[in-house]
Design a protein around this nucleic acid. Structure first.
Lengths: 235, 235
DNA sequence: GAATAAATTACACGCTTGAATAATTTTGAA
DNA sequence: TTCAAAATTATTCAAGCGTGTAATTTATTC
């Protein structure tokens, strides 16, 4: 965690920092993306300056331009990396579910597969939470730019889940499934990135930091919602 | 909508705008708040400059300071005004429901009362949508400042709804009600401020602009979620 | 070992930002 | 009628912004 001593030169008497390519492997653009993600998640696109990021990543501001070209491009990179990761996992889990022998997947299983990648991220502590907050912010970020990004990240995987849900609940008409998917997404994002509303409402008795409890609570709620008005009511 | 002619002086031949107090009633801080709300909703706190607002409200930037003191204070004013409006309406509707003779309120009625104030705002077109987006953004805005604001705005009224829901669904334990309230809030905010995810997923066949359809879809989903695991399954 | 490419820093540029101040005009009360 | 308070604009300020450029150092390749 402590990214100390990037140059590792003990007795340099120079007052100013050494220029040029440092020995050893480069601190890499990775550092920049990592810190940028946390910063964008915490303060948003407009609220984060390149100098914030460059200081946090212990790197010269011009390096960001060198690697990413501009603030916008860096933002896209950050968002894409994390979004693709979630999407990839979701698709993998759904594939697994659908290839499995023994009849079509239960609705609980589908919802669980949809939530699992984000739940795992949430488990990673503050940095995971930051990533999720970043995702949650995407709804509203820099208008035009992000719209296309969102589409590219979420469209296909979400459609596959919509189809799977519809297969599990064939009584629902298509429009209803779309609407319920929107509601489902809103509910899980809000709950998983909750700052302290749960604590506030419950007078400190509940906390959204408990990921297992979160899944235990969220899955039945969402399945109940998805199944509303249908005959199916398992267990 | 067209906030033209704030001073109403037809034949002023001066090139530069006249200083000092203009005749007639003042364009009022109201103009400023109105435009500020739309701007903050569209681009967020950090993404909106005081000059954006002052230009949009056709007012000198210094007037904002004169009336509100600072950007932060203006933001609070904007948020408080709209938040209080929703809260007040919600409480009024719940009071009405609870004073009504004929047994305790049904869960559908409670959920409907909770959603109605925001649904009515959504009906007001783009400006209503802007107000809702502002509310949706509050989850993440300028960290420290907004946290306290959120508490002041939502805490009491939400607790009353939590209590009402618990009364309607006494089989649920308290913790479950808290969790489900969080999920409910997330679902409705996301759905009602949806940019074009619904359209995207449904290939243009559904749109979240239809407020009646939104309620028709949202209420059963949310009630289904709230009732999950209980025996009650009305109609 | 010389030359080239890669990685990094320092620094400067023009612009925008939130805030502050001073000047000006109008209103309304004495 | 006079005058203080209120409402408004013009202008200025220092700080911070994203970006661009040149200099510098290291690593790699021939």
């Amino acid at each position: 965690m402590t990214a100390q001593a990037p140059t590792m030169r003990p007795a340099s008497r120079r007052k100013t920092v050494r220029r040029g390519r440092p020995p050893g492997e480069s601190p890499t653009p990775r550092q920049i993306i990592d810190f940028a993600e946390a910063a964008f998640a915490a303060r948003g696109y407009a609220g984060t300056s390149l100098r914030d990021i460059s200081e946090g990543a212990r790197v010269n501001p011009a390096l960001i331009r060198y690697y990413f070209g501009s603030k916008e491009k860096l933002f896209c990179e950050v968002v894409l990396r994390r979004g693709r990761q979630v999407t990839r996992e979701r698709i993998r889990l759904l594939d697994e579910l659908e290839r499995r022998p023994g009849g079509p997947a239960e609705i609980e299983e589908i919802v669980h597969a949809f939530l699992r990648p984000v739940a795992e991220m949430r488990r990673e502590g503050p940095s995971g939470l930051a990533s999720l907050r970043l995702i949650a912010r995407l709804q509203s970020e820099p208008q035009a730019l992000i719209r296309e990004l969102r589409r590219r990240i979420w469209r296909d995987s979400t459609r596959r889940y919509i189809a799977a849900i519809h297969r599990a609940l064939p009584e629902l008409d298509a429009a209803t499934v779309y609407w319920r998917m929107i509601a489902l997404i809103g509910a899980y994002i809000y709950a998983i990135t909750d700052a302290n509303n749960l604590r506030l409402f419950s007078d400190g008795r509940c906390s959204s930091d408990d990921v297992d409890e979160l899944l235990r609570q969220l899955v039945p709620f969402l399945c109940g919602g998805l199944q509303a008005g249908t005959a199916s009511r398992p267990s």
